[in-house]
Amino acid sequence: MTQPLSCWTRTMRVVLALLAWPVGARAGEDVPPAPPVASSAPGGTGGPGPEAPRPPFQALPAALSVAPGLVFHGLGTWVAGDTGTSKRLFAMQGAGLGLLAVGGVPIALTGASRRTIGPLYAVALTGASLVSLSAAANLYAAVSPAFPPGAPARALPPVEVELGYQHVYDPAFDYRHFLSLGATARWEAVRLEGALHLAPGEGNTRVRLGGAYRLLGAPERARGGADGTALDVEGGAVFHRFGPEGFAMGGAEVGVRGRYDMARLSRRLEGSFAEVGAGFAYQGYSYFGPLSEDALHEQLLFSFGYGVYLGRGGPVRGEALLYYNHRKDDFAGGVKAAVGVLGLFGLRGRLFWSERWGVSAELQAGSAYVARVAVVYALGGER
């Protein structure tokens, strides 16, 4: 049980080393460093420091970042003269490919054996996250000079609730239409959240209750500056009832999730962020008839994504995230592949158009397709 976790811990050190290195290595960068995140002096405003000149947009580097830049990450910024950013993106890609080979090749050779799949998947997914994030950063760095970067909200509301509609297309089940309810509460470094998805008249209900504690970074209610970098430990419980099918699933999960503002890596990446999360889930299946002999399961949780902040101190603000989630027990399920069953791919975002009102939306694709849209009301407002 501890082998996958210790293996993931060792490989995660590679990620942290790559991300931490550029913070103190800006002397050789060919573009101006990112501005100070916030003023901590007494009487300071807590906002972002003075703006530094942004590099100009160039069409050729932007085109090369797509082809062949998606194969050689950092090529576009190298052509633009930003060798510092290029070296870091090449380093991320190289480390990711190495970890992907170390974990992926044995998975293919052993036929995804249960005896080794846990630690190998942890290594391979860490490598895949580095390759994917460097690819996304490569594209963002090429086009970011063409528009003003967004910034994280200075403070998130103490309480927010949402009401929406969710549509699920799954060939294996008859349910389609869901009522979606959600709520989030924040106290200092603690966040509590809950979500309910209910298919009226179809007997399918999913409930999740969870929370998080901030280990590193400013609390969500008091960020103060323009940096959203943070590390949280998370936990939760899930119950999903499939009425017509005659079974229910319940489980608990625990893990860590980190967000890294990419402006720390390069001035060109200001306004974007990367997220990585990992953990374990323990689940049990209860059948309305005889109990299965294999009713208890464990699941490796791993997700990563690249996002952008929307808005910068104006009335419109929010964020969007393109992500991969390795879990397979949600509505979208997992994608079948040659090395086993992968997780799901998704895009989610939220946008506020006033102090209290906003909208959130999400698309997911796995073995099923999920679309959700909801209206969000913030008590206390989002700034």
Rank of each mutant, 00 (worst) to 15 (best):
T2M: 10
L5Q: 11
C7R: 12
W8P: 00
T9Q: 15
R13W: 08
V23Y: 14
D30I: 07
P36C: 10
A38S: 12
S39Q: 14
T45V: 08
R54I: 09
F57A: 06
Q58A: 14
A59N: 08
A67G: 11
H73D: 05
D82G: 01
D82C: 12
T83W: 05
S86Q: 07
L89E: 01
L89R: 15
L89I: 07
F90R: 09
A91M: 06
A95L: 05
L100S: 11
V102D: 13
R115A: 15
S129C: 07
L133Q: 12
S134W: 00
S134Y: 01
S134C: 13
A135P: 02
A136K: 02
A136N: 12
Y140D: 03
Y140W: 09
Y140M: 01
A141W: 07
A146N: 02
F147Q: 07
V161D: 02
Y165K: 03
F173L: 12
R176I: 14
R176K: 13
R176G: 06
T184V: 13
E193R: 10
L196Y: 15
N204Q: 14
V207F: 14
L209H: 07
L216A: 10
R221V: 10
G228W: 06
P244E: 11
G246T: 10
V254Q: 02
R257V: 12
G258D: 00
Y260W: 14
D261N: 14
R264K: 11
F280D: 04
Q283M: 13
G284Y: 08
D294N: 14
F304V: 02
G307C: 04
G314Q: 11
L321S: 04
H326D: 15
D329W: 13
D330N: 13
A332P: 03
G333K: 02
G333P: 06
V335T: 15
S354P: 05
E355D: 15
R356K: 07
R356I: 00
W357L: 06
V359Q: 06
G366F: 00
R372T: 15
R372Q: 14
Y377M: 08
L379M: 13
G380H: 01
E382Y: 01
E382I: 10
R383E: 07
